[in-house]
Design a protein around this nucleic acid. Sequence first.
RNA 1: GGAGAGUUGGCCGAGUAGGUUGAAGGCGCUCGCCUGCUAAGCGAGUAUACGGGCAUAACCUGUAUCGAGGGUUCGAAUCCCUCACUCUCCGCCA
Length: 422
Amino acid sequence: MLDLKFVRGNPRVVQDALSRRGSKVTLSEFLRLDEQRREKLFVVEQMKNRRNVVSEEIGRLKKTGKDAPGMIVEMRDLSGQIKELDEEIRKLEEQLQGILLDIPNIPHDSVPLGDGAEDNPVVRVWGEPRKFLFDPKPHWDLGEALGILDFERGGKVTGARFSFYMGYGARLERAVISFMLDLHTTEHGYVEVFPPFMVNRDSMVGTGQLPKFAEDMFKIEGTDYYLIPTAEVPVTNLYRNEILDGEKLPVRHCAYSACFRAEAGAAGRDTRGLIRQHQFNKVELVKFTKPEESYEELDKLTRNAERVLQILGLPYRVVVLCTGDMGFSAAKTYDIEVWLPSYQDYKEISSCSNFSDFQARRAGIRYRNAKGKAELVHTLNGSGLAAGRTVAAILENCQESDGSVTIPEALRPYMGGMSRIG
RNA sequence: GGAGAGUUGGCCGAGUAGGUUGAAGGCGCUCGCCUGCUAAGCGAGUAUACGGGCAUAACCUGUAUCGAGGGUUCGAAUCCCUCACUCUCCGCCA
């Protein structure tokens, strides 16, 4: 959410930013409602002031044994008017809030202009895609042949885009998660959190998933609870409506969670394998920083996520999302894309964003600055990494001509010392 | 699921026969004084949001906020209703 006063004072800047993003929101209606609200607010506050003054006077008179029937009648009438005006203002504020909640964040100045994914500049490339001397298999074929992935039964038991990991497959998924958590907690200074996998509506609004993207997630019928699409939601909302100690910033958390996404509008995309499931596992990195440090921290966070791929020896590249491809809440985003032989392309495995004060304003997350003033923090997060896609990348990039898979060195301790599957 | 207790400012904690209580007191914090150093002591200050004035500063001023929402009243932290959360006991349960 943007600052109301900023939008009011800089409508051109905001409108420009919106159009750069390809957003259709127009501000004229918003500005008109805002004007109306302030006019009514001014009137009603004057009325309330009079009520306060007169009521106090009535109290004083009663104390001295006098009565004031005229004043009481007048105030009864005034209170009725106040109630009506308050209601009108409440409705205006509801409308204003609705619009404000639907306005995306303003891209940072360093974000390149562009319309979509094809305009995202590559920032850096690490490693080199392996040249296979045989015909490499996609991970879904490999996984089924090795008996470690079962997509068919996932479909039977639940439905499309659900799957079972079996035997060493299940263990590999668990190994990847443990390895990543251990790396981030011991080498990168993140404090581990194990969050709830369901959150209430306020939390979803806090990080920007609601009200705009309700169709993207699963809601638990008969409750106010939603399945989380990422651990970003519970972990960022950990400190909702709190004031953090400025000395403790940046606060860094990492969290494993299952993630649930409806994938509305993704019909026909990535239909095979682990790439796009309704439920997947992810280790998330979340940071709360001072405003002046957030872009530096975004850089570090991105490199923390990259480190996972470097240690696993998986080739990847980093792109910066252009204005037209960024998510709703982000001010700047780097995507890390891992090489997938089956796609003959790089595929997103992590998305690292700085949300500036956009989520912090929605969620009321502040810190006390050096002057003792409460100020909004900046929030950041990134996958560190998506476990399912990491397993897919390992299977495909580390496969051998006989259909077996060599386990990356760093994961072997988590696999009981095994060096290959199959 | 049943019964009871609670929810006040950064923290702790007063405040119910409704009326200068945005809210005593303490702690913490900031600034100053004092002081070989530290501690202690002394003095002052210390919420947020939204309006208006004003340069979108400082500052002045108004309104709102004592878990949330609604009601009663000229007036509610104080009375009534609904909801949420926390704690205790019972039941159930991994």
